[in-house]
Design a protein around this nucleic acid. Structure first.
Length: 861
DNA sequence: ATACATACC
DNA sequence: TACTGGTATGTAT
């Protein structure tokens, strides 16, 4: 549609500026009229000019894509079609309709809060924000085209009577806390998206709810105020239904008793969700909408469907899901925004059914990641398990202001930002290695400049030392012109965890006592039943480590393999684990002990490099931090594999494999067959995946989910790979995979890699990690590989920590323990130069913190 | 690793 | 007069 408009109105029309009527409450507006006003108000502004530029960039991207499309041959398309179909089949197998996922979203949240607290506003079009920017508008205002992310002054043009209320975040946060308390009753692990929005997994609640007495499902109407509050309640959506039970659900009952009205809610999903919304409304006088579906992606779309103050349930059947998805506009899907929509539109794709029909084409035009997403969407797939809240990856602060061109003021501002940032970081006890400066000039052109330090920083001075240099370079690059800034921001990322939180123990237990259930991300932990005699693990196929990274790697690799473009050698790093490499390195170093330092240093460098590259895949490399523990887990998996591959055969391939789920022997050496068996087992055992895990664990649900995804991706990739290579290599393939000598050939098969550490089978075999003698586990250090004469995990962990440091990091030479800090050198120099460049501010000899604000020398002490 | 773009609320 | 701020992630180099 927007394309249509673009072509009818010519160059001047910006699809990026036009009204986004995606939002609830904005159906059937007079878009043309609204867009005309928006354009008239915007035209000629710097903002507009910049949008024009960006739109042209997008258009170019589209042109490029169309060119690419034009060169696609029938052949290619056909082949792609086949591949895409196979992928779809595999994804289809991952479909999980067993969970009940709910997405809750408060209606016009900020606006609703303000209306609640100021009844005058109730019948007026209003929005929260400022003349510069609105956060939210009420439904009344939406009829005029006034919506979130619109500047207030434009909104005023659209609706001159619009009342704009400034934001009051503290208030919203308080309300948010209230609703989150309610969320927690239905899913203690709910995932907040923002102050007003969250995903909940209702599955467990519903199971319990079935046996709840009515009294537990009875909720009172707001006690205090008049009995009819429900009608006075907050948000005035003239024509919207009330959540209050005018129409009762099948098993809902309304009643009035002495103390006031109350309502009994039934045991169905819909009743449970209605109850939750009811409680929210009674508690906050604000309404919420909800979507109920078998996965997050669908739940999110569903919550929008009957907004405001409504809910929608998508039944958990494949048929219902597919029907639902067919007519779904792609833009409704979270993750497909303005630009993606436009690109898809250019290919004639506007609904998800088109998406499904055009997958072959898309597979030739988009990245693996996008493709995977599109494919999932078109099949109505998404996460059935709500991932645990991930650790923060960055923290930033930025500010917009009136043009700022004076150097001193720019530095001053930069320092202020650093102060704010450092303060925020302190609250969370964070330290990060990468500092990024963001600048936006008065023409709305954005620039970011980053520098990664060898060590993590946290204090104002440390951050500012970097930010100031980055800023200085930009100022110099522009000189003699000044930087004319309208925004500056500072971000810090690449966090290292402040040592010693020790999530170590559970992981170690999980791996050293494979007989015990563990809630860590390991497959063993996930799916093992607590039997006792399964420790003879002839399990050759390791399942993937259960992280999102895993999924990503899989996705990246599958297609290049499919296309056979790279002879099985992708650009990925070899999938040796940190431990494998560290261990190999250690042996090398031992062997080369006599070699003079130079050589040693070179070695060390390469270790650092490889650790670094591994960190890219596995997030962090610091031997002491939490992430390295994950590596450690992976490595234990590796060890077990190695053990499996060698113990059963002594050089020969075993004829059967032991299923890690049911622990039965599977009479095959065909990995596909074996995988098929495991999948079967998994799907049976995952009916109640959570049962055997630590209730406090954070590592369960999402792991399961990731695992599934990995599993699918792995199988898919593997299948194709096997298919393509089989022709050439026939039988050899399977043999290769479990032949330690050919470990290299497994480079990209991280999850099938048969690991013999450094080819030394004995080392590995000797590492029988469990002793099911009822006396607790024998603990073997994964680094030095020596049995530890203790069953105290704290002591053991301490030993491992020491080993890690000594054996791995220390061996790397001074580098890690005493890093050179190029920045401090640079700083010294930079300071001198800058002072020279600023004759107005002589070198300061003041002590830290005494320099007055707004003088440039303050920054160069 | 860096820069820039897209997306979400 | 006036077009945000915070975080994550994808894409390209």
């Amino acid at each position: 549609m927007e394309n249509e408009a673009a072509s009818t109105k010519g160059e001047g029309f910006l699809s990026r500026m036009a009204l986004n009527d995606n939002k609830a409450g904005m159906e059937g507006l007079n878009r043309d009229k609204i867009n005309k006003i928006i354009m008239e108000t915007s035209k000629g502004s710097r903002f507009y000019e910049n949008e024009l530029k960006r739109e042209q960039q997008v258009n170019q991207r589209i042109e490029k894509m169309m060119l690419q499309k034009a060169q696609i041959t029938e052949q290619q398309l056909k082949k792609a079609q086949a591949q895409v179909e196979r992928m779809a089949t595999e994804l289809e197998r991952s479909r999980d309709l067993s969970r009940v996922i709910v997405h809750v979203d408060m209606d016009a949240f900020y606006a609703a809060v303000e209306m609640r607290d100021c009844p005058e506003l109730k019948d007026k079009p209003m929005a929260v924000g400022s003349m510069s920017m609105l956060s939210t508008s009420n439904y009344h205002a939406r009829k005029y085209g006034v919506r979130a992310a619109m500047p207030g002054f434009i909104a005023k043009k659209l609706c001159p009577n619009l009342v704009i209320v400034p934001t009051n975040f503290d208030k919203y946060r308080a309300v948010s806390d209230e609703i989150r308390e309610i969320f927690a009753d239905y899913d203690p692990h709910f995932q907040p998206v923002s102050l007003d929005e969250a995903y909940l997994d209702f599955t467990d609640h519903l199971e319990q709810r079935q046996s709840w007495p009515e009294s537990s499902r009875t909720h009172r109407f707001r006690a205090s105020t008049e009995p009819e509050v429900k009608d006075l309640s907050p948000v005035l959506f003239e024509d919207s239904p009330s959540s209050s039970p005018c129409l009762l659900g099948s098993d809902g009952v309304a009643a009035t008793a002495g103390g006031g009205a109350f309502e009994v809610f039934g045991t169905s999903v819909e009743e449970a969700v209605r109850e939750m919304r009811f409680r929210i409304e009674q508690k906050t006088m604000l309404t919420a909408s909800a979507g109920i579906a078998p996965n997050m992606m669908l739940a999110k779309v569903c919550s929008d469907k009957n907004k405001p103050n409504g809910q929608y349930r998508l039944p958990p059947t494949r048929e219902a899901v597919m029907d639902f998805v067919q007519n779904l506009p792609v833009r409704k899907v979270s993750g497909i925004g303005k630009v993606s929509e436009k690109m898809l539109n250019a290919l004639g794709i506007s609904s998800c059914s088109h998406l499904g029909q055009q997958m072959a084409l898309l597979s030739l035009l988009f990245s693996d990641t996008s493709l995977h997403h599109f494919m999932q969407v078109s099949l109505g797939l998404g996460s059935s398990y709500i991932p645990r809240h991930e650790e923060r990856k960055s923290m930033s602060t930025e500010r917009t202001f009136k043009e700022l061109s004076k150097v001193e003021e720019q530095f001053s501002l930069c320092r202020d930002l650093c102060e704010d940032l450092a303060e925020d970081m302190k609250k969370e006890d964070l330290k990060g290695k990468t500092v990024t400066l963001k600048l936006k000039n008065v023409n709305f052109e954005v620039k970011t400049r980053a520098l990664t330090l060898p060590h993590a920083v946290a204090t104002v001075d440390e951050i500012f030392a970097v930010a100031k240099d980055l800023l200085k370079v930009e100022i110099e690059n522009e000189s003699p012109q000044p930087l004319r800034l309208r925004l500056m921001g500072v971000r810090i990322s690449a966090f290292v965890s402040p040592d010693d939180k020790k999530p170590l123990q559970r992981s170690i237990i999980g791996f050293l006592q494979p007989g015990k259930t563990d809630s860590s991300g390991s497959v063993q932990g996930m799916h093992q039943k607590p039997e006792k005699d399964h420790h003879v693990q002839t399990w050759t196929l390791a399942r993937p480590p259960l992280t999102q990274k895993c999924q990503k790697q899989e996705e990246v690799s599958w297609r290049s393999k499919l296309r056979g473009l790279e002879g099985g050698q992708t650009s990925e790093e070899p999938q040796q684990s940190f431990f494998q490499r560290a261990h190999a390195k250690r042996l090398q170093l031992q062997a080369a002990n006599a070699i003079p330092q130079e050589e040693g240093h070179r070695e060390n460098d390469s270790v650092i490099e490889s650790i670094g590259s591994h960190a890219q895949n596995c997030v962090e490399s610091s031997a002491k931090n939490r992430k390295s523990i994950d590596l450690l887990e992976n490595d234990f998996v590796s060890c077990e594999e190695a053990q499996a591959s060698t113990s059963g055969c002594g050089g020969t391939v075993s004829e059967s494999l032991t299923c890690p789920v049911c622990f039965r022997q599977v009479e095959t050496t065909d990995l596909n067959v074996f995988n098929g068996h495991i999948d079967q087992c998994l799907s049976e055992s995952s009916r109640k995946p959570n049962q055997s895990t630590d209730p406090n664990s954070e590592l369960d649900l999402d792991s399961e989910n990731d695992h599934k995804e990995c599993q699918v991706a792995e199988k898919w990739r593997e299948e194709c790979e096997v298919e393509e290579e089989r022709v050439k290599n026939s039988e050899e393939l399977e043999l290769k995979r479990i032949d330690p000598q050919n470990q290299r050939s497994l480079k990209n098969d991280s999850h099938q890699k048969v690991v013999s550490i450094n080819g030394d089978d004995k080392t590995v075999t000797s590492q029988q990690p469990q002793s099911c003698n009822g006396r607790g586990p024998v603990l073997i250090c994964p680094v030095c590989q020596l049995t530890q004469d203790t069953d105290d995990l704290a002591i053991f962990n301490h030993h491992v920590d020491l080993c890690l440091n000594q054996e791995v990091l220390h061996e790397l030479g001074g580098q890690t323990s005493c890093p050179i800090n190029p920045l401090s050198v640079t700083n010294g120099k930079a300071i001198g130069e800058c002072v020279q460049n600023s004759p107005s501010s002589p070198p300061s000899k003041r002590a830290k913190g005494i320099a007055p604000h707004n003088t440039i020398d303050k920054f160069f002490r």
